[in-house]
Design a protein around this nucleic acid. Structure first.
Lengths: 217, 217, 217, 217
DNA sequence: CATGAATGAGGATTCATTCAT
DNA sequence: TATGAATGAATCCTCATTCAT
C-alpha cells in the first residue's frame, strides 16, 4: 500500500526546493520531536513561507508523515542494494551491520526521526506509519532467512518470521545506539566511553551473536 | 548515584495519595508523551490541586523524572528477584522473557513511559535518566554472562559486555513490542495479527535465538 | 548608547496601530505597575491579538522598555526645544517648570510610568533604563549651568554637576507631584487641597527657590 | 490620625518575634516590591508559620502598611531628635543631610520601601499611607522655616509651605539616591562612579544649594 | 501561486489565603 | 494559639493554522 501525504502542488515544485523543505523538516522534527518542532521555523530554514508549507501539506502531521515516508524510502534503497547483491546470508548480515553504522553516522536525523515516530501516541498516526514501513524489513528479512534455510546456510528448526523479527530488533537498536542520545548513553554504560571509536569490534561481536543464533557453521 | 526528584513534602503524604498521583502521572505521560502531558489534568485525575503537585515536585520535568525513577525501581525489583534465584543461565533468560511478557501486559504504561523517555530530546534530561538506570541492566547482565562463562554454560570466545548489550536490546524491544502502539503494529507485521495470543511460542523462539547466540549445547 | 526593544515587524505597521498599542501599554503599565500589568488586557485594549504583541515585542519586559524609551524620547523633544531657544538661564528654568506642569497634566501616564520604572527591583532592567536616559538630563543641565557660569549669570563657586543633580531632583519631584497619587497627596499636605488650582504660584515659588540657590541677582 | 494595621494578637507577642517578622517583611518588600513579595517566604524568614502571619495581619496589604508605618516611626524619631536640639536653621539642615546619608546607608530597606510605597497604584492604599506620614515632614519643616524667618535667619519673602515642600523634595531624592538602584545609577551619571565615596562633598554642595535658596547671609 | 502578518486557544507555574489539626 | 498543607485563580507566552494581499 502506498500513501501520499503531500498535496499535488508539492509534486510540481523544483527538486531543489523539495529537498530544502524535507531537510529542514527532518532536522527540526529530529531535533525537537514532533510536538516541539516548529512549522514556522521549518519554513524559515527552508527559505519558503509558512503559507507555502501549508499549500504543500495539509497540516503538521502530514508534513511529518511525508518526511517519515521519505526517510523510509532512503533506507529501503540502501537495504535493497545489499539484498540484491546475491551474497551468502552471513555476508548480507555483515553488510547490513556496516551499512547501519555508516548510515546512522551520516543520517543521524533519519534514525532519530524513526525513534521519535515510534514513540508517537496518536494511534491513527502510528498505524499509518507502521503500514508505511510494511514489507520493508518484515518480508525482506523473512524471505532472506527462508532462502538461507533452503540453501542450508541456516538451521531449519527455527521460525523464520520470528527470527526475522529478532534480527530486526538487533538492527533497530543498533541504529538507535548510534543516533539517539539516550541509547548512546546506554551503550556507553554497557561498554565504555570509547565504544564509538571502534565500530569494527562492535560489528564483529554482533555478527558473532547473530551467527550463533542462526547456527551457522 | 541516586537522584531524588520529589520534595520532602511528597515523602510525608499517605502512600495512597502518593500512588494516586504517580498513577495519574504515569498514565498521562505514557498516553500523551512528555510535551502533551497536562499537569492540570494529572492533578485532577489524582484528585489533588495543581498547587499540591507543585509542592511535591518542583516542575513538570521533576515529576516526569520521579515517575521514571519509580518505574525503574519496579523493574529492578522484578529483575533482582529473578537473578537472585540462582538458577542456570538459560533458565534465567527464560524467566526474564516470561517476566517481560507478564510485566509488559500488566504495566503497559511503565514501558510506554520508558520508550517515551528514551526519545526525549532534551540532553540534560536524557543524561539524568540514563544515569538513573545505571547498573540496572548493564552490570547485571554482564556479570551473569561472566559467571555463566566461568561455569562453562556459555561460550568463552565472546565479549560479555557486548553480548550483554545485545541481550538487553532483545529484551527492550520485546517490552516495546508488548506495550507501545508502533512496535505492536510492527510485530504483527512480522508475524501476524494473532501473535499476541501465543506468548509461549514467541518466548520459545526467542530463547532458541539467544541459546544459539550464547552457544549453549 | 541606543537600545531597540521592539522587533522589526513593529516598525512596519501603521503609525495608527503603533500608537494604539503604545497608548494601551502605557496606560496599563502606569495604572497597574509592571507586575500587575496584563499583556492580554493590553492587546485587547489596543485591538490586536496577544500573538501580535509577542510578534512585535519579545516579552513583557521588552514591551515595557519600549514604552519607557518612547516616553523618554517625548520628554527629550520637549526639553530640547526649550534648551535650543537660547534664552538666559532663569528663563530656561522657568520654561522647564511650566513645561513640566503642562506635560505632567497632559501626559500623566508617562510620568507615572517613570516613577514605576524607577522603582523596578530587577537590577538588569534598572541599568538598561538608566542607560537609556543617559545624557538626557545629566549632561544637558550641567552644560547649561556651565554656560550660565561663563556668562556670569550664575555664581561660580558651585560644582555644576552637583547643582545640575539638585536641579533635576526638584524637577523630577515636581513631575511626580503632578502625576502620581502618592506625591499628589503629599503635595496637598504640604500646601493644601487647592494647590493644583494655582500652578503659577507654585512655579513662582520654585523659581524663587532655584534663583536663590544659583545666586542670581 | 493614627492607623493600626495589625490585629490585637500581634501586640501580645514578644518584641523579639515582632521585630523578626517586621524585619523579614521589610527586606522582602524592599527587595521584590509589593507584588513580587512572597508572604510565605516572609513567614519562613521570620521563623513563624504563614498561618500566624495571617493571624497577626488580615492580609498582604495590611502587613505592608504595618511595616511602612513602622519605618515612618523610625524616621520620625531620627528627625525629632535633630529638630529638638534647638540649633540654627542651617545647622539643622546640615544635620538632616548627614542623618539621611547615614540612615540611607544603614537602613537601605526602609528607603527602598518608601519608594516602593510611593509608587503604589491602589489609591485607597496611597491615601492611607500618605495620611500616615502626615505631619512628619510637612508641618515639621514648615514650622522650622517659619521660626527661622522670625529669627531673621531666613529671607521673609518666601512662602514657607512651598519652600518646605522643595526642601523635602531634595531630601527625599537624596535618600533615594543612596538606596534605590535606579536613583543610584542616575546619580552616578550626574557625577561619576566615585560619587558614593565622598559623602561630604555632596553634603557640602547640597548645603550650599539650600543656603542660597533660603537667602542666608 | 506565494507570502507572512494575524490569530487565540492552551498550559505551566505562582502565591495569597484558608482551615483542619 | 500555632501550624503548614492544600487550594485554584490568574497570567505569560507559544505556535499551528488562516487568509488578505
Amino acid at each position: 500500500m502506498k500513501f501520499k501525504y503531500n498535496n499535488e502542488l508539492f509534486d510540481k515544485i523544483s527538486e531543489e526546493k523539495k529537498s530544502r523543505i524535507l531537510e529542514a523538516a527532518i532536522t527540526e522534527f529530529a531535533d525537537y520531536g514532533y510536538d516541539r518542532a516548529n512549522i514556522n521555523k521549518i519554513a524559515e530554514k527552508a527559505g519558503v513561507s509558512v503559507g507555502s508549507i501549508y499549500k504543500y501539506f495539509n497540516n503538521k502531521q502530514d508534513l511529518y508523515l511525508a518526511i517519515v515516508n521519505f526517510s523510509v524510502e532512503k533506507l529501503k534503497t540502501v537495504l535493497n542494494e545489499i539484498i540484491s547483491s546475491e551474497i551468502d546470508f552471513l555476508s548480507t548480515v555483515e553488510k547490513i551491520i556496516k551499512a547501519i553504522q555508516l548510515f546512522s553516522r551520516s543520517d543521524v536525523y533519519l534514525t532519530k526521526l524513526y525513534n521519535e515516530m515510534a514513540t508517537e501516541n496518536n494511534s491513527e498516526l502510528v498505524w499509518k506509519i507502521a503500514s508505511d514501513m510494511e514489507g520493508i524489513s518484515a518480508n525482506l528479512y523473512s524471505s532472506i532467512i527462508k532462502k538461507a534455510q533452503d540453501d542450508g546456510q541456516v538451521r531449519k528448526d527455527i521460525n523464520s518470521d520470528y527470527f526475522a523479527f529478532f534480527l530486526d530488533n538487533l538492527f533497530i537498536l543498533l541504529q538507535f545506539s548510534y543516533s539517539c542520545e539516550y541509547y548512546k548513553e546506554r551503550l556507553k554504560m554497557f561498554i565504555d566511553e570509547k565504544v564509538f571509536d571502534n565500530d569494527d569490534l562492535l560489528a564483529e561481536e554482533l555478527l558473532k551473536f547473530i551467527k550463533g543464533a542462526f547456527y551457522l557453521k
